[in-house]
Amino acid sequence: MLEFLQRVLGKSFSSKKIAKERLRLVLLHDRTCLTPEILDSLKGDLIQVISRYMVIDEKNLDVSLNTEDESVALVANIPILKVKQIS
């Protein structure tokens, strides 16, 4: 899409940038040895634990790996609908 837009707008597009971005993502997964299946199972466990304390919007929940410089972070964005009253 981005490529298409840039082509339409007549900007010179460098395929090197695509290569770097794809490499960055693929290496992130290679290096952490986290398969999409493991990430899915982690997501399931997270939902289970958090649901004990609050009602969350499971449809808009996002768990992904992020990289900054040399470090990798697990970033979870979990919208809360309601906090459960725990007595």
């Binding site: 010179s12 597009f13 460098s14 090197k16 940038k17 290569a19 770097k20 490499l23």
Partner: peptide
């Protein structure tokens, strides 16, 4: 800009 350069690869 159609091939990664030296710095790109060293960085990665």
């Amino acid at each position: 800009g159609d091939m990664m350069d030296i710095d790109d690869m060293i960085e990665i």
